[in-house]
Design a protein around this nucleic acid. Structure first.
Length: 180
DNA sequence: GTAGTGATCTTCT
DNA sequence: GAAGATCACTACG
């Protein structure tokens, strides 16, 4: 367990900025996250456990991987019961050649900037849903010291609970999916 | 630069 | 039947 399992989702989303995510020898440093909680209607866990969101009600420190818009695979870190943090953007650092091949692009810019892009770069599949961040296939290294310049704002791509400023990121980073 | 749309599939109404 | 925690591509100013 790389973090305190009692941490609230919003604190966890903030703490994950600057952490390193490595999935089977590809990954990098997190620069953008979003928090989702069972208590608000934008979350997949809203309404309680179902087959698709089972991982969000499983143990903390595991992955919740879901298919978005029928196309993209998106990655979350599960926190307390029914809470998870969507990883929205990484600085590409590890296994860059592999990620470039998976994404079919030649430049680093935009390689992992966005939840769908990141999912493709890391080669996520539905089989990854529920896997632990135990240092084997999935690794999560919390930052030694919190990075400077963390800001928050409204989450992207949702139509409910749009007033919650539960998107976190490093202001001005060139690796964000969108500016704050 | 903004606006619109197709891809593709699971879940919910 | 519609909407969704998205992205890429096209058309148009």
């Amino acid at each position: 367990m790389p973090f305190d399992p009692e941490t609230s989702v919003t604190d966890l989303a903030r703490q994950l900025i600057g952490a390193a995510i490595i999935v089977r020898n590809t990954g990098g440093t997190i620069v953008e996250t979003e928090a989702y909680s069972i208590k608000e209607p934008a979350s997949h866990s809203f309404g309680g456990p179902r087959a698709r969101n089972a991982a969000m009600f499983g143990p903390p420190g595991h992955a919740y991987v879901y298919r978005s818009y029928g196309i993209h695979m998106c990655l979350n870190v599960v926190g307390r019961r029914g809470e998870a943090v969507l990883i929205r953007a990484l600085v590409p650092e590890i296994g860059i050649d592999t990620m470039i091949r998976r994404r079919g692009q030649i430049n680093l810019q935009g390689l992992c900037s966005g939840p769908g892009r990141l999912g493709q770069a890391l080669g996520l599949t539905q089989a990854d849903d529920g896997k632990p961040f135990d240092g084997l296939e999935f690794k999560l290294e919390m930052p030694a010291n919190p990075p400077q310049g963390i800001v928050s704002g409204p989450r992207i791509g949702i139509s409910r609970a749009t007033d919650l400023p539960w998107r976190f990121g490093i202001a001005g980073s060139p690796w964000l999916s969108r500016a704050f």
